[in-house]
């Protein structure tokens, strides 16, 4: 996830881009919740650095260009913490937005290939 600042972030934006939702019990993805005291501020914004620390997400800063990159969570040593599929919103070839969950009720074979 690329950010221009680590200041207050809308938790919904964080959830959309990482799959981790800020809830009273902590940061949650699927059925997995990681306690994250202080991450959700009183003004309902997210302390990104604190949330990232609780989730084991590396925070990389490019000072020259003034941007931050937040890496994926490392809570269990695996790429997945849950078998609940993420729900990314992707662009179709004609520019329409497509949400993976629109295929609920059907089997999905998600294939990725490289362009190099």
């Amino acid at each position: 996830m690329i950010l221009q600042t680590l200041d207050a972030l809308d938790p919904e934006v964080f959830a959309e881009r990482t799959g981790w939702h800020a809830k009273p019990e902590g940061m949650c993805s699927g059925e997995v919740c990681v306690p994250a005291p202080g991450a959700l501020r009183a003004d309902s914004t997210l302390d990104v650095a604190l949330a990232a620390r609780h989730l084991g997400m590396p925070v990389i800063h490019d000072e020259t260009h003034g941007v931050w990159a937040i890496g994926p969570a490392t809570t269990n040593g695996h790429a997945l913490t849950t078998a609940v599929a993420a729900d990314p919103v992707l662009a179709t070839r004609d520019g329409q937005l497509f949400r993976l969950s629109s295929l609920l009720g059907r089997k999905v074979l998600l294939v990725a290939w490289s362009s190099y």
Binding site: I2, I60, A69, G71, G77, H78, A79, A83
Partner: peptide, 23 residues
């Protein structure tokens, strides 16, 4: 449980690499 345990290993180095690549 098998899905999670068979997913790719991801420690600090792999997560940092992902952030660096995306950046």
């Amino acid at each position: 449980d098998e899905v999670v345990s068979r997913s790719l290993p991801r420690g600090d180095d792999e997560a940092r690499a992902a952030a660096c690549f995306e950046l």
